[in-house]
Design a protein around this nucleic acid. Structure first.
Lengths: 121, 121
DNA sequence: ATGGAAATGAAAATCATTTTCATTTGTGAT
DNA sequence: ATCACAAATGAAAATGATTTTCATTTCCAT
C-alpha cells in the first residue's frame, strides 16, 4: 500500500476540488512540481479508499475526483460546465433498501446521479 | 455516416436491453454471427444518435448501452454473477424532476443503479 | 453491367489507467 | 554514522476500451 502524497490533495483542492488524474498531473507540472503520473494515480486512489475524495465519471469515461464531505450524498452535474451540486437523496436510500429486500439482495450499494444543463449553460 | 446494423439492436434487446459494446460483440460471436467489433461500435453510436439507445458508464468507465424510450427502468445488478433484475423506479423519476427544478437544471437525465449480492451468491 | 456511395472489418492508433520493477528515500536499530 | 529494510517513487511497458484508417465488399440507381 502507499499513502497519499499530500501535494496531490492540495492540488486537487486548488483545482476547485474537481479534476481528473491527468488534469491534476498537468497542473502540478505547470506549477513546477516534480511528480510522476503514477504517483498521482496512486495518491488519488488512496484518497478514494480513505473516503476523502469521491470518484465519478465524465461523459467520455474519464474518472474525475472530487473532495467530498463525510455525508453520503448524490450529485446534480451540469453537462455544460461540469458544475456540481450535492443533493439530498434520502428517497434513494429507502428505494435501494426496499428493492434489495424485495429481491433478496445483500450488501447493496447504489449510484444515483442527475445530469442536465444548469441555468448558466 | 453509417446506419445501424439491425442485428446489433436485436442482440442488445436479447441481452436484456443492457450491455457494453464488447458484450454485444462477444454475444454475437457466441451465437455464430459474423460481425466486426468496429461495426458493433458504429452501430451502437448510431443508435445513440438516433436516441434509440441510451449510454451510461459502469464504475470502471466502460460504456453500457441500453434501450431507452418507452419503458424507462432501473437495474439491480449482482456483483457476484452479474445477474440483472429490472426494477421499477417511479420514485427516482420524481426525485430527479424535483431536484432539477429546485436548482434550475434543464434537459435532465439520470442514472440510478443498485448493486449487491443476490441470494444465490 | 457500371459507377459511386454506404457499409464493413482488420489492423493500427489513441488514451486513460494499471502493472512491473528497479531505484530512491525515510526510519529505526545498533 | 552505518546498516537494513520497508515504503514511496516514477519510467516504461502492459492493458483494455474505443476510435481511426483504409482497403475491400456490398448495394443501388442508372
Amino acid at each position: 500500500m502507499s499513502r497519499s502524497n499530500p501535494r496531490v490533495l492540495s492540488t486537487l483542492e486548488r483545482a476547485g476540488g474537481f479534476a481528473s488524474a491527468q488534469e491534476v498531473y498537468r497542473l502540478m507540472q505547470r506549477e513546477g512540481e516534480s511528480i510522476g503520473l503514477t504517483t498521482v494515480y496512486r495518491s488519488l486512489q488512496s484518497l478514494v479508499n480513505d473516503k476523502i475524495v469521491d470518484v465519478l465519471r465524465r461523459d467520455d469515461g474519464e474518472a474525475i475526483y472530487r473532495l467530498c464531505g463525510d455525508a453520503h450524498h448524490h450529485h446534480l452535474v451540469c453537462k455544460g460546465c461540469g458544475d456540481t451540486v450535492e443533493i439530498e437523496g434520502g428517497v434513494i436510500e429507502k428505494w435501494a433498501k426496499t428493492m434489495a429486500e424485495e429481491f433478496g439482495f445483500r450488501e447493496v450499494g447504489h449510484t444515483a446521479e442527475i445530469f442536465g444543463l444548469c441555468s448558466k449553460c
